[in-house]
């Protein structure tokens, strides 16, 4: 579970402060997977990083219960000159997990074959995402933060990810940010729209879709 208490974040630009998160109060309870919709640049990724703790809010408080993943997506988190295996070892170590188990699981889940032992910089973005997903699945988080999964891999890999999330829906929660309603529908039971620094929750996905249409 993650709680936000009047979380505020602004970026300084030449044109003055640009407020991306404006005193947001929110609750992400256990076992309720939430989708966060927003246009490009609405601050979705910033929100995700603040939820995960990689970035600090300018004001307000973030309370996390349980283990929260890093924002999983296409980018970040890997050293390009190290192989997928070495990167997996590193991540296993910083999370205090069994290194061999994690490496083994990530390799099987990612299905990137020989590339697992080659430098990550030789990967396509899809392969990076596969590795990131495999790794995060190996680590058993209570809350998974997912950034723009829409195009991760082919159909069968998407199905695999969904199955993996469904598999652990008893113990894990997913928070997904996306600008695509279809993605949200696949994974989430409720959604929120991030617009103009405010986050509005909708218990009904159709309502959320409508609200999103209105601002997008």
């Amino acid at each position: 579970m993650i709680e936000l208490h009047s979380v505020t974040k602004a970026y300084r630009t030449r044109a003055g402060d640009h407020v991306v998160l404006d005193r947001i109060d929110a609750m992400f309870p256990d076992q309720v997977s939430t989708g966060i919709l927003g246009k490009n640049g609405a601050g979705k990724s910033t929100l995700l990083r603040i939820l995960g703790g990689a970035e600090r809010p300018d004001a307000g408080q973030v309370v996390r219960h349980g283990r929260v993943s890093w924002p999983i997506g296409f980018t970040g988190g890997f050293n390009g000159s190290l192989s997928g295996e070495e990167n997996s070892r590193f991540v296993a170590r910083i999370y205090g997990a069994d290194v061999d188990e994690v490496v083994d699981f990530a390799q099987r889940f990612a299905e990137i074959g020989e590339y697992f032992r080659m430098p990550v910089r030789t990967y396509s973005s899809g392969m990076r995402a596969r590795l990131a997903f495999g790794l995060s699945m190996a680590l058993d988080f209570d809350t998974y933060l997912v950034d723009e999964v829409t195009a991760v891999g082919d159909k069968s890999f998407q199905a695999k990810c969904r199955a993996a999330f469904e598999d652990r829906s008893e113990r894990s929660t997913v928070i997904i940010v996306s600008h695509n309603m279809n993605t949200i529908r696949k994974y989430c039971s409720r959604a929120a729209v991030l617009n103009g620094g405010r986050l509005r929750f909708y218990e009904d996905l159709d309502e959320a879709a409508e609200a999103y249409e209105a601002v997008a």
């Binding site: 283990r67 050293n79 190290l82 070495e86 070892r89 590193f90 170590r93 910083i94 999370y95 205090g96 997990a97 069994d98 188990e101 680590l139 058993d140």
Partner: peptide
């Protein structure tokens, strides 16, 4: 998962310290 986080017996400070040591160790190896 057999995480050291979950099994550490003592208080927050020890846990924080262990987590930091783990990170520094992993980074140094890398």
């Amino acid at each position: 998962m057999s995480g050291a986080v979950a099994t550490l017996p003592r208080g927050e400070l020890t846990r924080g310290l262990m987590a930091q040591l783990r990170v520094v160790h992993a980074l140094a190896l890398r």
